[in-house]
Design a protein around this nucleic acid. Structure first.
Lengths: 239, 239
DNA sequence: GCAAAAGTGTTCCGACTACACCCATGC
DNA sequence: GCATGGGTGTAGTCGGAACACTTTTGC
């Protein structure tokens, strides 16, 4: 066909990039997993953990593969974020811009800091970065991260994702602080937040209390996935 | 590097596929734009309007390009839906499955039927299909369509997208019927739906009335984008 | 005792539900 | 008249916002 010669198709390599969030409960900081690049392009820049998709491999398989090389964590659920593919987003594309194109499908997940063990291979750096201290990243990864951060804020309001990043046992103060860290101050009064969540009935009190510095000791709670079942797929707001 | 030879990267062609919805206000039916394929694979199957991305072309450019060949419409806003890329989703991939892979980035839009003129090129078929009568489509396009339908339901509840598919002037009955068509019966009482929408203040009564068969004539309304501005980006439910 | 953080309770108010009811037209 | 769809009003109820207040700890 004439169109085939007049308008040649672009050839792509496809990458997957993961935006993995966690939370430092001690300091109430939102964290993101970054990798130090050890080869060109962007050598010695931090970037999101990603890889190029191999023959016979699905996009998700690739995303899980690279993650399993970087952290040990169970029950990680990746959700597709967005696909970036405009020409010129990767310097490896030939300057003429008519060579191979690089496309990135991004994925998103939350993990509890305590349940994720970073795999130090002694070669490449790997770290949890506080979201406000993220430097200029390789490629357009700052943009991807921003997109993921946006999604995180939305998810937090509508789904019980908070319990994916909190440790097994947590206080209602921890939970509240997490919301503050992600959504910003003033999204809700603490006491109202408290009663609303408790009324829903899927937070189980353990009876154990912890004291952290001054103030009355707080009860430790546990997320009861079974009790949450009834809310599954129902629209609800957690603010 | 060793990994490069042991795990060769997949080579991709990247396609864009559009899920374009509209509504038949007369018969309260949700419509989707389909194209009849005139070449292999899947010759004589209906499919979503899509194309493969050309050299130097961004994903969105490709999506807009193929649409402009099929329909004339102004102010069309495409939103990225999802990316499908597992091996084997396109029969053009070599049977060995180690040849070129085909990936599809899908986009989503709503258009008013009256504002969209189908471009009949005399060769390929093009049609608005009622969503319940969509046949087996080419490739995995039924799955993509399903995903788009899902997104549509969500959007309708939270954004004023309904006014993108309705004609310039519409009755509150039309609006209600649209919601019924998309969300199913029983999402809300008509009179409550009515008062809630009107209270928001971005529906302007024109004074004109229309009579359609029996019953009291209905007022025609117009969506006032300016008055809606204040709600922009605020979370709100339109049920 | 006092500050700090956890936890409880109360009041006010707006929004949504579920109806009942009136209005204007075609036939 | 009467069926049909458009349009208005109201009473009851639920839930969130704001805020005052009590409890238990460290120092």
């Amino acid at each position: 066909m004439a169109s085939k010669t007049r308008y040649p198709l672009a050839d792509f390599k496809v990458g997957v990039d993961n935006v993995i969030f966690s939370v430092d409960t001690e300091q109430n900081r939102l964290l993101v997993l970054l990798i130090m690049r050890d080869s060109e392009p962007y050598r010695d820049y931090w970037c999101l953990p990603g890889t190029l998709v191999r023959q016979g491999e699905s996009l998700e398989d690739g995303a899980y593969r690279i993650l399993s090389e970087k952290i040990r964590v169970k029950n990680l659920y990746l959700e597709q974020l967005y696909t970036f593919g405009e020409p010129g987003r990767d310097p490896r594309e030939a300057p003429s811009s008519y060579g191979v194109r690089y496309l990135s499908v991004s994925y998103f997940a939350l993990v509890a800091l305590s349940a994720a063990e970073l795999i130090a291979d002694g070669v490449s750096g790997i770290a949890w970065y506080p979201i406000e201290q993220v430097p200029k990243l390789a490629f357009d990864h700052n943009r991807i991260l921003e997109y993921g951060h946006h999604r995180l804020r939305n998810k937090l309001e509508y789904s019980p994702v908070a319990f994916d990043v909190l440790p097994e046992l947590f206080t209602l103060g921890d939970l509240y602080q997490l919301y503050v860290a992600v959504l910003g101050e003033g999204f809700s009064d603490y006491s109202n937040f408290r009663s609303r969540l408790l009324k829903l009935g899927f937070l189980k009190e353990t009876g154990v209390k912890v004291s952290r510095g001054a103030g009355r000791p707080a009860s430790l709670y546990r997320f009861d996935a079974e009790a949450f079942e009834q809310f599954k797929d129902k629209p609800m707001v957690f603010i």
